[in-house]
Computed example of a mutant assay.
Amino acid sequence: MNTTRRRVYGTVAFMLVVSLIMMYFTITPSFADGSGTSSSPFSVNQGIANQGSTGSVEGYIVGKPVSTSSVTTSDFSDDYAIAIADQVNETNVNEMLFVQIPSPFRSEFGLQSNPSLLGEAVVVSGSLTDYFAHTGVKSVSDMELSDGGGSGDPNDPGDGEPSPYDDTYYSSAVGKTGSALKSELHLIIDDHNELTYSEVWDALRVTDEDPANPNNVLLLYSGRSQSKYENGGNVDDWNREHVWAKSHGDFGTSMGPGTDIHHLRPTDVTVNSSRGNLDFDNGGSPQSEAPDNYYDSDSWEPRDSVKGDVARMIFYMAVRYEGDSGEVDLEVNNLVNNGSSPFIGKVSVLKAWNEMDPVDSFEENRNNVIYDQYQHNRNPFIDHPEWVEAIW
């Protein structure tokens, strides 16, 4: 009898333990990493799917909400909100979370005060609930920048992917940051073959060849594919655009900065004229022949798909030309209307463009062609876009 009771009690106890284990896994939330712990934040898509709960979400800052269905990426009017997404270049508002920023975090995370945060990865903790009548995060208890490793775009320049040139060309620069990195990169890229201004024509026919049509080049601002030999000064010709405007430092077309094809690109004559020597910033009116580009009296905004290209060319020039060997010292600043001074801005906008528009195969090929066939130096910010943030 006692043996029978023990067996019954043992069976009941075993069933109770099993029931408790099953209850635990039933009520324990499933987090972003599937581990059942809160060690990893939700992605933005998971945050959208889990509205009504409380937790942390990681995403890229892609703009500021201005209405239920609209996000702005420039001219930020306040520091009260940000929009985050899983992709650094996301434009679909339905793929975003709108985050209400409480006052303790506004000075550090608001875009009016910190426009350079556009494109940065952030982890936000709070209530996953509508904000601006849109899926969002409110009652935020914590905000912190992250490396974007939890979710998002694997091509983001913050990922620090190694370059095949790290063990050779960049070996003395790897591991450095700040002014030490800038100085070392200058030494690496400083000495190179210099072209004459007339030689630039033939070089651009190779560096900017249309991958879909070897008889054409792709024009930087318009994106138009045009015959390699329709170049010159006529209205619909293409000519040699100095992305770092040659009047910013007054170096003209002399060998060196005036002929450095890392920043010289084919552009439509009329569009080139509209850009002139304007600094870079967001906003303005569409250029009539290239309406995806915007400009006003003091700045030029290129089309989205070459924003990063433009930024990385500018950062290259600021490292390559440091004032030694009798050359001009070019530097980026956070101003427009720089005129003939050897400066170009805005650095905060250029940094955001570097992150919003990752390096693509056309840009990589161009860098390789310049290195292999023409100047024999590289643009380090194409090989390592994250070095922009490491320096500036």
Rank of each mutant, 00 (worst) to 15 (best):
Y9V: 12
V12S: 02
M15P: 06
L16F: 08
V18E: 07
S19Y: 10
M22V: 15
F25M: 12
F25P: 11
I27F: 08
P29C: 03
P29H: 02
S35E: 05
S38L: 12
S40Y: 12
N45G: 14
Q51W: 00
Y60C: 01
I61K: 03
I61H: 02
I61Q: 01
V66T: 15
D75I: 09
D78I: 00
D78L: 03
D78K: 08
N89L: 02
E90T: 03
E90A: 08
E95A: 15
E95T: 06
M96Q: 14
L97M: 04
F98I: 06
V99M: 03
V99S: 05
E108A: 14
E108F: 05
L111S: 02
N114D: 04
G119V: 03
V123K: 11
V123G: 03
V124Y: 00
H134R: 01
S139A: 13
V140F: 05
S141A: 14
M143V: 05
L145E: 09
S146H: 04
S146Y: 01
G148T: 01
G150F: 13
D156C: 04
D159S: 10
G160Y: 06
S163Q: 10
Y165G: 07
D166M: 08
A173R: 04
V174D: 11
T177M: 02
K182G: 10
K182D: 10
S183G: 12
H186E: 04
N193R: 12
L195G: 01
V200A: 12
A203N: 11
A203Y: 05
D208M: 09
P214I: 03
R224F: 10
S225A: 11
E230W: 14
G233E: 13
V235I: 07
V235W: 10
D237Q: 05
N239F: 08
E241T: 05
G252M: 06
S254F: 09
S254Y: 09
P257Y: 01
T259E: 03
P266E: 06
D268T: 10
V269S: 13
T270Q: 15
S273M: 08
S274W: 13
F280I: 13
N282A: 13
Q287Y: 12
E289P: 14
N293H: 04
Y294R: 14
S297A: 10
A311M: 00
R312E: 01
R312Y: 00
Y316V: 09
D324G: 10
V328N: 09
L330W: 05
V336Y: 00
N338K: 05
G339Y: 00
G339A: 00
A352V: 09
E355M: 08
M356R: 15
V359P: 07
D360V: 06
D360E: 04
N368S: 11
V369T: 13
Y371N: 09
I382R: 03
I382G: 04
E386F: 02
V388I: 07
